[in-house]
Design a protein around this nucleic acid. Sequence first.
DNA 1: GGAAAACATTGATGCAGGTCAACTATTGTT
DNA 2: AACAATAGTTGACCTGCATCAATGTTTTCC
Lengths: 190, 190
Amino acid sequence: MHEQLSRYINRQIKVSEEELNTILSYFRPLTLTKNELVVTHGQTSQRTYFVGKGCLRVFFIDDKGQEATRYFAFENQFATALVSFITGEASEEFIQATELTKLLYISHHDFYHLLDTIPQWEKFYRYYLENAYVNNTKRLMSFLVQDAAEKYRMLLAENPVIVRRLSNKLVASYLNISQETLSRLKAKVK
Amino acid sequence: MHEQLSRYINRQIKVSEEELNTILSYFRPLTLTKNELVVTHGQTSQRTYFVGKGCLRVFFIDDKGQEATRYFAFENQFATALVSFITGEASEEFIQATELTKLLYISHHDFYHLLDTIPQWEKFYRYYLENAYVNNTKRLMSFLVQDAAEKYRMLLAENPVIVRRLSNKLVASYLNISQETLSRLKAKVK
DNA sequence: GGAAAACATTGATGCAGGTCAACTATTGTT
DNA sequence: AACAATAGTTGACCTGCATCAATGTTTTCC
């Protein structure tokens, strides 16, 4: 799996063989079964996860027990409870495997150590942040402006994997609509 | 106004006098009258703005002509059409002065030049991105989960300046509720 | 392989908040 | 000061989608 991660990193930044090995040495493997949680509510010490095989879901739960999914990370993507990772505050976000998932993780501490010691890692993180920001903002705009049918059609157009690979329940929680509404939409749109 | 910006920068990062002057030299002043637009739809070449006095509003307009406000920047804050700034794509966001506003701006080109030449600037940008990300995500969560009254109460608690200083119309567009609903809420909550 | 649990579908009902409209208050302009 | 334009208020009405409920379907796992 370190192989996979190497390729990912090399696509983003230019690092020497040695630096790359240093970076990789901080990542540890982990396997999660379906539905297993890897970040739970209120947890403070965060990690960043790289998905080798499977899928992670980043979500949070409000006072009334309503779930809302913020992000899905499939193979070769990172997932982090990023707000908590950045602020150091207790996490309002959970991370859960939606299926059997193999991943690599690095601790917050080691991640920031790399920022200090490998200048290119700062750039790596910059790209990561930029990407996360753009994603989230587009999502924000979509919620502000689109109704249920528009959101679903857009998801089908831009991210059909999510619809194909995940249960209706999870897709609905990603679109922030009820499962019933999604079911009716699917029957109609096809 | 460069004075103000210096203080802001020094609070974030450690730079030499010389580096600071280099940074400042790229910022140019600009004055906007009330309602004047400084970024318009579809614009590609972006700038980052530092508000010396006044207020900038970052917003976008959907197909149906609905406005939604993403951010207000008051004195000593930055405002950017950040998605477009990052991606280089045409902007879906507008930036407008809500009152007479004096600001400093730096072009995308010069900003990235600083990233390459002043290592601490990379850190400055990192903080900026982290902050923007945390803000936006909290906003996203709030929209996913809160109803009109909850959003208003939370705004009052966390960012009363916005309610105090801006028109109902703008506050409503920030909360993504209709002006009428906000008016009714204000009458009730007081 | 079969029971239990989780998920999906479909219909009926309710309501938060949007839209429209008419009126009042405030602000800007000459 | 006076007029126009813009912003705010309040009521009546309507609609998109959540919620509840009943039923069918798929998954899970001993």
